[in-house]
């Protein structure tokens, strides 16, 4: 696969914790082929793991009869990742706060709630997007550019969709 090509990889994984590792390995292979740096590949692996874990745990209630769909689209300048879940827990969160680790350590906050924050810090664009008419449930999109400077030049369309739908970027 050359950076000039546009290839789509689609995975359907059972909604069961642990299966996010399939998506993790698949995206690592795609990202390596796109010549992302080793550190960026690690960032992408962690981001997709967290997004799939959320889709499994919250988007489909860890019900293994349900599926989480992961679509990896690699093109010339970026890797676009879309994660679809059945939306079992209703609307996804809109606001993502910095984790209050002091509150967790002091017992004032529940442990957890760090996944979306970590994703936001690791990728160039991230946010829930509106599902098409044929799709039901939640769709979470992440974009990682091959060149760091492109982060500042992300498309208006992507930014608009993120901000209108609780985007994190």
């Amino acid at each position: 696969m050359t950076p000039q090509s546009n290839r789509v990889v689609e995975l359907r994984i059972p909604s069961e914790l642990g299966y996010e590792k399939i998506a993790r390995e698949a995206v690592a292979t795609v990202a390596h082929r796109l010549n992302f740096t080793k550190e960026k590949v690690e960032d992408i692996k962690t981001a997709i793991s967290e997004a799939c874990t959320n889709a499994i745990r919250y988007g489909s209630g860890s019900d293994a009869r349900m599926k989480v769909v992961v679509i990896l689209t690699a093109d010339e300048d970026k890797l676009d990742i879309l994660i679809k879940d059945p939306g079992a827990s209703g609307a996804p969160p809109i606001d993502i706060d910095i984790p209050d680790i002091d509150g967790m350590v002091e017992g004032k906050r529940r442990l957890g709630g760090m996944g979306l924050y970590i994703i936001r810090e690791l990728v160039d664009e991230a946010g829930f997007v509106e599902a098409s008419d044929e799709d039901e449930g939640n769709q979470f999109r992440m974009v990682i550019y091959r060149v760091e400077d492109n982060k500042k030049e992300s498309s208006p369309e992507a930014k608009a969709s993120g901000s209108e739908n609780g985007g994190l970027a």
Binding site: D43, T46, E50, M104, V105, G107, L111
Partner: peptide, 30 residues
Amino acid sequence: NSAGIAILIGVVTEARKRDQKLLMTGLSAH
């Protein structure tokens, strides 16, 4: 993953109550 990190934060909570010092080794740069 973040669930694993949450487990470690739970350990931090207990360690502070017991006045223990926690150290972590072997982690990748990532």
